[in-house]
């Protein structure tokens, strides 16, 4: 789907944020970018989204590059419009694409139902819990039926129980929608539970150090599976080794 070769990116100050990144993103992948703060995960995500161009190297799409609405994004903060009801927030990407309210409404309702918020359509963001706001943000990202869904530490600010529930829901959504997902996280547990491919990144400058293919079946039950614990252990070990390397 997307091929990155030798990609580098500098911050405006001149610091190298990313250097020599090679990555192949396949159709239907669920890929986690895992690493400590400052390892360029979010920078890489912005490059994939096309929000920033690479300073060196190339990003090549197989076929036409995605147009408006073909990439869905979810940030750590839900970033909903506070003056718009949940359904109006979900309508936003379609509205920007020129769809009127009446035409967009079935898709908006379906997206809200997908994240379990069919009943909250008329509520304003401030009347929703943190977890519900994040669900609205996910529905907003899914409403255009994107080819590629990019998530930047979306559950980092939520409590553990809400986070687990949303992780399980995201996994189910991915299996149903079959889009490609790139998920940025600094949690080994999260990466191991969600991703099919765990890409380990190291800072100074940001590089891809290692990659682990998950042997787990995508299912909520894996949390109690010894294989999950083993994957967490393996990921931890390889992350430590990658960080110790000069």
């Amino acid at each position: 789907m997307l091929t990155l070769r030798g990609v580098g990116r500098r911050f405006p100050g001149g610091t190298e944020a990313l250097a020599g990144v090679d990555l192949d993103l396949g159709e239907g992948d669920f890929l986690a970018l895992l690493g400590p703060s400052g390892c360029g995960k979010s920078t890489l995500l912005r490059l994939i989204a096309g929000l920033d161009p690479p300073d060196t190297g190339s990003c090549v799409w197989a076929g036409a590059p995605p147009g408006p609405g073909q990439i869905g994004v979810v940030f750590q903060d839900p970033t909903l419009l506070p003056w718009a009801r949940a359904a109006e927030n979900v309508w936003l990407p379609l509205r920007l694409g020129g769809q009127r309210r009446e035409a967009a409404w079935p898709a908006v309702q379906a997206a809200l139902a997908q994240v379990g918020l069919a009943d909250a359509a008329a509520r304003y963001p401030r009347a929703l819990s943190g977890g519900m706001r994040m669900r609205v943000a996910i529905a907003r990202a899914l409403v255009t039926r994107p080819r590629l869904l990019l998530l930047d530490e979306p559950f980092a600010a939520l409590d553990e129980f809400t986070r687990h529930k949303l992780q399980e829901d995201l996994l189910a959504l991915w299996q149903r929608a079959r889009c490609t997902v790139v998920f940025v996280t600094h949690s080994i547990y999260e990466a191991a539970f969600l991703a099919r491919r765990i890409v380990l990144m190291t800072p100074g400058p940001g590089r891809i150090a290692d990659e682990i293919a998950s042997p787990l079946a995508p299912s909520p039950q894996t949390r109690l599976d010894p294989a999950y614990a083993a994957l967490v252990g393996e990921t931890t070990r390889r992350m430590q080794r990658a960080l110790e390397m000069p």
């Binding site: 912005r46 989204a49 096309g50 929000l51 147009g67 408006p68 609405g69 990439i71 994004v73 940030f75 903060d77 970033t79 419009l81 003056w83 936003l92 990407p93 509205r95 920007l96 694409g97 255009t144």
Partner: peptide
């Protein structure tokens, strides 16, 4: 205006007019 919302508008192909009318003014 949150830079992330601006990114969201850009990714969905928003025009300058839409950014003003649907994001900056409200």
């Amino acid at each position: 205006v949150s830079p992330e919302l601006l990114d969201l508008f850009r990714l969905n192909g928003a025009s300058r007019w839409q950014i003003l009318w649907l994001l900056r003014l409200p």
